[in-house]
Computed example of a mutant assay.
Amino acid sequence: MANIAAKRIKREIIEVVKGEEGVLKLELVNNAWTDLLGEIAGPPDTPYEGGLFKLEIKIPETYPFNPPKVRFITKVWHPNVSSVTGAICLDILKDQWAAALTLRTVLLSIQALLASAEPNDPQDAVVARQYIENEPLFELTARHWTNVYANGPTVVWEFNQKVQTLLEMGVDEHNARVALSTYNWDVEGATEQIFS
């Protein structure tokens, strides 16, 4: 990696560490300037509140002229994040990137995305459909995922019991949660999808 890019990333990591937000973290993976681990706190007054979400950040050789590649490592139920791969649909990570943007800006933008979903421009169509058709159920599902995967505070006992029902049928826990979330927590629909 070019020395200029490495210096800039070092400066940007310091900027995040010194930031007053207290909700962002950034660190090198294996002392490589091209591989970073980010962490954001779930925004207040959202289903993600209280959760800590880890992000994989890959810095291209052409940084800062091209955006970093960022994806959620922590599983999250959100219309603009793939519930399978963690891919994020965010304009500054694609065509709206500018060399003046920083990793701190990226982390804050992803955090803001958690607070204001764009279901009409989804990364995950299933989640977006649930958000549009049944927002209260979407919020409960997102709180459940935040509790299970990001150590969020809200336990949704009814959903845990439904996951347990599928576990007793021999279904993997994450696959059970995905099927139930996809089928609006209908055990019969989820079971049919898994065993068909």
Rank of each mutant, 00 (worst) to 15 (best):
V23M: 01
L24F: 15
L24T: 03
K25L: 11
K25E: 12
K25G: 07
K25N: 09
L26P: 04
L26T: 00
E27K: 12
E27Y: 02
E27G: 11
E27V: 07
V29S: 06
V29L: 13
N30K: 08
N30T: 13
N30V: 07
N30F: 08
N30S: 10
N31F: 05
N31D: 11
A32P: 00
A32F: 07
A32T: 09
W33F: 05
W33R: 07
W33V: 11
T34N: 08
T34A: 09
T34R: 09
D35F: 09
L36G: 01
L37V: 00
G38C: 07
G38N: 03
G38S: 02
E39R: 02
A41S: 13
A41Q: 14
G42K: 02
P43I: 03
P44E: 04
P44K: 02
P44R: 03
D45H: 09
D45P: 01
D45A: 03
T46K: 03
T46C: 02
P47A: 06
Y48K: 14
Y48N: 06
E49G: 10
E49A: 15
E49M: 07
E49D: 11
E49T: 11
G50E: 04
G50T: 04
G51R: 05
L52K: 11
L52Y: 07
F53M: 00
K54Q: 10
L55T: 04
L55S: 03
I57Q: 00
I57A: 00
I57N: 02
K58S: 13
K58Q: 14
K58A: 12
K58C: 12
I59S: 15
I59H: 13
I59R: 14
P60I: 02
E61F: 08
T62C: 03
T62S: 04
Y63L: 14
Y63W: 13
Y63V: 12
Y63C: 14
Y63G: 12
P64V: 00
F65N: 13
F65S: 03
N66E: 10
P67E: 14
P67L: 14
P68A: 11
K69R: 11
K69H: 07
K69M: 08
V70L: 08
V70M: 06
R71F: 03
F72N: 05
I73M: 15
T74M: 12
T74K: 11
K75H: 15
K75E: 06
V76Y: 02
V76D: 03
V76P: 04
V76R: 09
V76S: 11
V76H: 00
V76K: 04
W77E: 00
W77V: 04
H78R: 11
H78E: 03
H78C: 05
H78K: 10
H78D: 04
H78V: 04
P79M: 11
N80Q: 05
V81I: 15
V81M: 15
S82Y: 15
S82R: 15
S83K: 12
S83F: 09
S83V: 06
S83W: 11
V84W: 09
V84S: 13
T85S: 09
A87W: 12
I88W: 01
C89K: 15
L90G: 04
L90C: 06
L90P: 09
D91A: 13
D91R: 10
